[in-house]
Design a protein around this nucleic acid. Structure first.
Lengths: 148, 148
DNA sequence: CAGTATCCCTCAAGATACTG
DNA sequence: CAGTATCTTGAGGGATACTG
């Protein structure tokens, strides 16, 4: 009854997401992939996850079209996992999670890494979902009755 | 090895989020709360989750300061769960997940509910995380090396 | 190095009965 | 109605040994 059936029948996009990447590791693998990590052992060392689990998650992420298996960019005869376009479009999700975590899950003054703009060098701490017209989206603005 | 220790020691905001709401139900409960759901049995019917699990998740979300237990707004002598400010600030996360799911987890033409602007009545399908200057944020723009 | 194959175990989740 | 208590199951995850 797990993932596959739910994911196919579930009419709520949020629920499908949770079903797909809502486990302890998948999203952290994606985060690491954004971070430039691509090799099996790099993920393993970074996350401290068991190899069989990592193997399984990587396969599922590849099956889902989020990661892709390519020949390594360095000469190293091995493969590496890179984000597909679909995977890269998870960026807003990771950023949103990250910002919420920064604001609400750390004590005042407690250290966490920074997300900075590559060009300007300025921190991107204030990003927020905005509507196309540039207006910042807040709960009260939306028809939350339709959020599911 | 579980939640509490990890959440306290984990230096990555994303990881702390995953640890806190990265299970099958918590985020869907939050989604339902945005949706106006507040009563125990409403959550239960909406999600189809077992009562003991729902009870546990609601308590954890309250403990985390995401939900709050109030006297019901109708006269009904019972309580209801409402999002705190901290909980409401999860809105961007839910929206980001929702949009990614809409775009990548549904077949062309497959139905899913709409998120519409309450004022204009227009769909808010194009929301995207933007930097403060209004520029839409894309992976290449950010120092992804610092995403973790 | 990059996995696969096994074994094991805990805990999340479900089902059901019960209570104020 | 809004939970709690209890029992059971199975999947998720960890450890370790093995392989091309």
């Amino acid at each position: 009854m797990p993932s596959e059936r739910i994911a196919e029948e579930e009419p709520c996009p949020v629920a499908r997401c949770v079903d797909l990447v809502g486990d302890r590791w998948s999203l952290l693998i994606v985060r690491d992939a954004f971070d430039g990590i691509g090799r099996f052992s790099e993920f393993q060392r970074s996350l401290g996850v068991a190899r069989n689990i990592l193997s399984d998650r990587l396969r599922k992420l590849v099956d889902a079209g989020i990661l892709e298996n390519r020949a390594a960019s360095d000469g190293s005869a091995y493969q590496e996992y890179v984000l597909t376009a679909k995977g890269e479009s998870l960026f807003p999700v990771v950023v949103a999670l990250r910002q919420w975590g920064e604001q609400h899950l750390f004590a005042k003054g407690e250290a966490h890494s920074q997300l900075v703009d590559k060009r300007s060098g300025r921190p991107l701490a204030r990003m927020a979902p905005q509507a196309r017209d540039g207006r910042v989206l807040r709960p009260a603005d939306a028809e939350v009755r339709k959020l599911r």
